[in-house]
């Protein structure tokens, strides 16, 4: 998703207003004229200045541009769905891993994604079987990271 200079400028001015609005409610440190809001207000000022600069540049520019262009990922239906799947995989992991455990969740994610990106079933199944076990050995066994065991819990203990 690509914004024109003017559109990006508007987004920045909006962000500046939101930051400044929130920061104004921060309390002052007693006995001082400034507090936790000073730095965020300065950042908001910077965003506003850059935003205005971009809006002016967009207005001055001779070439007319669309406010928003799709760009390489959003402009391609397959890549758009791929992006949804990548972010969806993170969401699925967050929801499913505590119940199913790391290895089964990772198996499902890898199988789905590797297959989706065009590998053969045989390759996808191999990767989905070997990958999670290798990562489990590296992180859970060697580095002692408490990866969720889930279903494995009842098998192992």
């Amino acid at each position: 998703m690509r914004l024109s200079d003017a559109a990006l400028g508007l987004v920045l001015v909006g962000a500046a207003a939101a930051i400044a609005g929130t920061a104004r409610s921060f309390p002052l440190v007693p006995g001082q004229a400034f507090g936790p809001s000073l730095f965020p207000l300065a950042i908001a000022g910077g965003f506003a200045a850059c935003g205005v600069g971009l809006i002016l540049r967009g207005a001055r520019s001779a070439r007319r541009r669309l406010w928003v262009e799709a760009g390489p990922v959003f402009g391609n239906a397959r890549a758009r769905l791929d992006m949804g799947l990548i972010l969806g995989a993170i969401a699925v992991y967050l929801i499913a891993a505590p119940h199913l455990g790391f290895v089964p969740t990772a198996f499902a994610i890898l199988l789905a994604l590797v297959r989706r990106f065009g590998a053969s079933w045989r390759l996808a199944v191999t990767v989905a079987l070997v990958g999670p076990i290798a990562l489990h050995l590296l992180f859970a066994e060697w580095l002692r990271v408490p990866l969720p065991l889930g279903l494995l819990l009842s098998i192992r203990y």
Binding site: Y93, A106, L113, P132, V145
Partner: peptide
């Protein structure tokens, strides 16, 4: 093949981020 590598990297990123604080919020 990149179709194999990309999902593996994604998974590694998820586990690696989690490993720092053992906190699922890291994935968000």
């Amino acid at each position: 093949p990149r179709p194999v590598l990309t999902p593996l990297i994604l998974l590694f990123c998820m586990v690696g981020s989690f490993a720092i604080d053992n906190d699922s919020f890291a994935l968000v």
